[in-house]
């Protein structure tokens, strides 16, 4: 289990990195962030990039900053463990540390990066589903261009994003959570730190009358990329979140929108059971948290 040869670039600045990837991206070169998924794949020789452009020495990509609008911008190379333990993140986007707890183990999160986990687009990844629910904004740069992508467009399929071969995800904007918003991240895996079988992220607000608004729910582990629970969201928005309604709303999504597959760890029926029970538990938790903000 030794990787195949590759050319190695260790740029010290973003400009240098953009030049490097412009040169090698089209010929099978890849970006190396934390490498906690890429290097194992290389050791199995399932991935054989011709060149690696290593972003680990680019100090300008490591940051967590507040935005004026109450959100955050996070440098793509910020270590997952740094994000998880950051007090500003905890305050402004508490769903992020909550989901990061489930991502592998702390030793992996010490090296793994926020941008890397998103750009990996793992269908069982914690951050993509949270990105979809929170509608992260992705800052994508190349030598000649600079663009932003919403979460809906960013994730394309299994291990595939909208990033072009010469582009680098450099920063992630995390929108502000609205006042009185509740959140929840729930997942099931067979072991702590092992691949998730299914996960649900929920974000919602309650108005003064306790009516749900801005409800967003997304599932992971049920398709090639995160799936928004449109039916459940529609049923919950504008209504009192009673236990019965939550169950009904989630059931509508499970029946109408989810089509999970089976693998060696989970049957379709079990995944649907998880979708029902975790989905309802997640919405309930978000409601309780929203109510507590009053």
């Amino acid at each position: 289990m030794k990787p195949a040869s590759f050319a190695y670039f260790s740029p010290k600045s973003l400009d240098e990195a953009l030049a490097n990837i412009a040169e090698v991206g089209d010929d099978g070169g890849k970006i190396l962030a934390g490498g906690q998924s890429l290097v194992p794949a290389m050791n199995f020789r399932m991935a054989q990039p011709t060149a690696l452009v290593d972003l680990n020495e680019i100090q300008e990509l490591f940051y967590i900053k507040p935005t004026d609008t109450g959100g955050l911008v996070i440098g793509a190379m910020t270590r997952d463990r740094t994000v998880e333990l950051d007090s500003l993140v905890k305050k402004r986007a508490p769903i992020i540390p909550e989901c990061l707890y489930w991502m592998a183990h702390p030793t992996i999160r010490n090296r793994g990066t926020f941008g890397g986990a998103l750009a990996h687009s793992d269908p069982a990844g914690q951050l993509p589903v949270v990105a979809v629910v929170m509608n992260f904004n992705f800052h994508i740069q190349s030598k000649d261009a600079d663009r932003w992508s919403g979460a809906d467009d960013f994730f394309v399929s299994v291990y595939t994003t909208c990033l072009e071969a010469d582009e680098i995800l450099t920063g992630i904007e995390v929108p502000a959570m609205t006042k009185m918003s509740g959140y929840s991240y729930k997942q099931v895996s067979r072991q702590t730190g092992e691949s998730a079988l299914l996960g649900v992220a929920t974000l919602l607000s309650l108005d003064d009358a306790g009516i749900v608004k801005d409800c967003r729910i997304a599932y992971m582990g049920v398709a090639e990329k995160p799936v928004m629970a449109m039916e459940a969201m529609a049923m919950l928005n504008g209504n009192q979140p009673s236990d019965e309604l939550i169950t009904e709303a989630i059931e509508a999504t499970v029946k109408g929108e989810l089509d999970p597959g089976a693998d060696i760890h989970a049957s379709v029926e079990y995944r649907l059971h998880l979708a029902r029970t975790l989905g309802a538990a997640s919405v309930k938790e978000a409601v309780i948290r929203a109510a507590k903000q009053e």
Binding site: G35, P106, I108, N110
Partner: peptide
């Protein structure tokens, strides 16, 4: 920081 030396 603890890290895996086999995937670095």
């Amino acid at each position: 920081q603890p890290q895996r030396s086999c995937i670095t």
